[in-house]
Structures are given as C-alpha cells and as structure tokens.
Amino acid sequence: MPVQRDEVMPIRSSEDVVRVRQMVRQWAVTLGFSLVDQTKIVTAASELARNTLGYGGGGEVQLEIVQKGIRSGLRLTFIDQGPGILDIELALKDGYTTGGGLGLGLSGAKRLSNEFEIFSRPGEGTRVSITRWK
C-alpha cells in the first residue's frame, strides 16, 4: 500500500495523548473526512494512545496517509515496548480490563475503525494499527 506522508509522535504523558488527538484531527481534516469520520478516528486514537501510555508504559504513534486504488485513508500505528498482552482475544472483549477502566478502549477503537490489526506477545510489547478510509 503506497504511503503518501508519514510522521511519528511520542506518547510519554497525558499531554502527549492530547497532542496525538489534535494531530490526528488535523490529518483527518486534510484528507477531507466528514465530521463524523473525523470524530471516530480521533476518538479511536485517544483510546489507543491512552493504552500505549497506561499499559505499555509509553511509546509512539506513526501517522500515515495511505492509498488503495483511488481511496485514501489514515492509518495509525501505536507501538510500545511494554509487558504485552497475554490473551488478545480476551483483551478485545467489551468490558474486559486489567487497568480499572471500562474495558472499551481496544474493542471500541476496533469498532470505530475500518481496519484493525494487533500484534502482541508477553514481554515483547504491543503494536496496534487502525485504518479509516475516506
């Protein structure tokens, strides 16, 4: 998939989570996303950035504008070197949490995206990638 533009942002503090939200919004506006689609990808980004910070102990996000045929999309990849996820299927269940939240972060982000990929192994960190097409 050709990548037209990309940028990496650190996620080390809750202020960084806000900055990620704002940058994702800017990119979604540039791509011409509708207001609802902008809101969905920004909300998904907020959930995943908070996971990167809270569970992964910090990390980074890569923003990419990707092209598939005539469609363009926004792909966000969240990477951390934290403890990883033992049972991904369980982690994706609504209401499941190990952190005292609502357990909607991962499953909600998946629902708000068109494509969702997750790679994680205990001790090796987590990599979550979401794409929303225009």
Partner: peptide, 14 residues
C-alpha cells in the same frame, strides 16, 4: 453534546 460525538460515543459502546 455534538451529534458526531453522540454517534461516536454509542459506537464506542458507551
């Protein structure tokens, strides 16, 4: 609450 926020919130599961 903005309409886009309401739509997203329900899809998120809240």
């Amino acid at each position: 609450m903005q309409p886009a926020v309401a739509i997203t919130l329900v899809e998120l599961g809240l």
